[in-house]
Design a protein around this nucleic acid. Structure first.
Lengths: 336, 336
DNA sequence: TATAATAAGCGAAAGGTTTCGTTTAAGAGG
DNA sequence: CCTCTTAAACGAAACCTTTCGCTTATTATA
């Protein structure tokens, strides 16, 4: 492989001039042409390892995900990546298949890879493990925790106000006269699941409706879980008249189950889903869904991380949650 | 950050001995202990950039995907990653959001990142662009093209025999007396779409059924496309009695459309889907689907790439397609 | 014309590791 | 006690850039 030394020799200019050319310093026009040509003909490419060794920067951001096929994150990551790319950063995505050991290992890998910044979707992460991992490097790598809050980790977060929006969704059901409202929630270990439950619970409480534990079904945020739990709710001796499903995959499962049982939404069961404008377009009648501000989440995450990587730690730690909204449609029936 | 020099100073041993310790050479037991302790207390971590600079290896494999949320690939990538990890390799996943420019750029990035191997799911890639990209390095990076064949690229491939399995699926319809069989296919620019069409076409031809172009709908492998095209087929003046949908996302869309229109499978429309055992578990009646050997695809890809990275180029280029199978279920009705 | 200021280019050190050829130490055999 | 062999450790070069302090050339200012 051609090195700067080769370019130097080929042009008769010193290595430092070549470096200047590459990194945008002042170089005489005729020499610029000379160097440009030499780089072309020699097919010279900067050696990133050598550069990183000197600069301690890799222009690379690590993104750690529980899995690749979670549509909510897939969309956000695409946006974040695009934004970072504009600033010259490249994203390295690692997934850990919901496995605690892998989660730790991949995090260590990213840090060892000397990423300049980290975006983490924590699943089994603890404050201790994160601190340990970040200690692998002298200077702590700027880190943004995405979507999920972890007890004890003081860090920049980009979160969504799940409590409020689930409260809204539940209120909506109540407004239409529903009293038996089923909840399909995620693993309580994940903050978003707890928050969504909290919102649901708050709304019930405000209307003095008792929370019936049987109506709260815990799943693992997967399509299968949504399918199964929807069935369980429907098959209860005294089933709910309305169901709130709290992520995309489970909503997909639930809707599939509803179709399969030929249960009409909303005449036979009222329903609110989560996260998916596309699904809503597709389904008739369109269902009311909780819409998370994915574009804003992505933008906030990217900007925040860029800011930190540029050394600007003002407003640390960032935590203000973003507002989610209810996209009202025709999936809720009035109960007398 | 502590360096080997620090460990050396701290233990009184030379740097090369430290290196030997780290890379598994012969070191006196007492010195091993000494070094181990020093590494602990100094919190020493090997600097990968420096190491790569010397060794020209990064123990890293690049995986390039059209998008992150294609379930077929998400599953395979997870498996491949796991296998590679066992051999000490880490995967870097890049997606390009179906964008030709990004596809080229991300490929260049991975190569510049000095990955030791590449796994490519090509979408707009051409022989020329690939050759150009690989020319960024002195030695061509071992590369496996996954799932999709690209005209003119002579390389290791891991492919599936789409022709045969789609022929089988179509034959199955014919066997049950169907003559008007709809096909929901992907973009003809992608080899798998062409092959699936070829299989469909071959089966019709063998039974002397004319291929009616109106019954062949081209989509972009997305849920939306599946939903829309299923509707278009059903809304025809003379609709098909059976429909073959040729990837997971489009199958999902098609099934959603069927449920929504309250079309009973198979009594009102016979259907064969693609790729998703999970969906099949969920749906009642379970639908007949084309099952691609994802585990085998992942295993083959990983082993092949490992072999190449170890310098073993026997059997190059690998191309033998893997057999896909039909998982027969109850989604096909008999037509008199 | 002399001086200052700026632009362009240079040389050498530094960054952390691996590798190769060499030296030292230790144990075996006579 | 001496040589031979092998194991363990060493030193220095090499990998390719960036950076910093200097020198030289050019232009502007008075």
């Amino acid at each position: 492989m051609a090195t700067m030394k080769d370019v130097s020799r080929c042009t008769g200019l010193s290595i430092s001039t070549i470096s200047k050319y590459i990194n945008g310093g002042n170089v005489l026009a005729k020499n610029q042409a000379l160097i440009g040509d030499a780089i072309q003909t020699l097919n010279f490419k900067v050696n990133r390892q050598a550069r990183s060794l000197k600069t301690n920067r890799t222009m690379t951001v690590g993104i750690l995900l529980p899995a690749l096929d979670i549509s909510f994150f897939a969309g956000i990551v695409a946006d974040v990546e695009a934004r970072l790319f504009k600033e010259g950063y490249n994203a390295i995505i690692c997934s850990f298949d919901h496995d605690p050991a892998q989660e730790a290992r991949k995090l260590a890998f990213l840090i060892d890879q000397q990423v300049d910044g980290l975006i983490l979707v924590a699943e089994h992460m603890t404050a201790l493990k994160l601190r340990e991992a970040l200690a692998r490097r002298e200077r702590v790598t700027p880190t943004v925790l995405l979507d999920r809050f972890v007890e004890g980790i003081q860090s920049d977060y980009v979160l969504v106000d799940n409590v409020r929006v689930c409260e809204l969704a539940t209120e909506q059901f109540i407004l239409y006269g529903h009293k038996r409202i089923g909840l399909i929630m995620g693993p309580p270990a994940i903050s978003t699941a707890r928050e969504r439950l909290a919102g649901y619970s708050a709304a019930l409480c405000a209307s003095e409706i008792d929370l019936c534990p049987d109506l709260v079904k815990v799943g693992d945020y997967s399509v299968n879980a949504g399918y199964r739990l929807f069935g369980e709710l429907i098959d209860m001796p005294n089933p709910p008249t309305a169901i709130l499903s709290t992520n995309y995959e489970m909503t997909l499962g639930a809707v599939t189950a509803a179709y399969e049982r030929n249960l009409k939404i909303p005449s036979e069961i009222s329903f609110i889903g989560y996260d998916d404008p596309q699904l809503t377009q597709i389904i008739k009648p369109p269902i009311t869904i909780v819409l998370q501000p994915t574009a804003q989440i992505a933008a906030t995450t990217a900007e925040l991380l860029l800011k930190r990587m540029h050394g600007d730690y003002s407003g640390f730690p960032h935590a203000a949650p973003l507002k989610a909204s209810l996209m009202l449609n025709e999936s809720i029936a009035r109960i007398k």
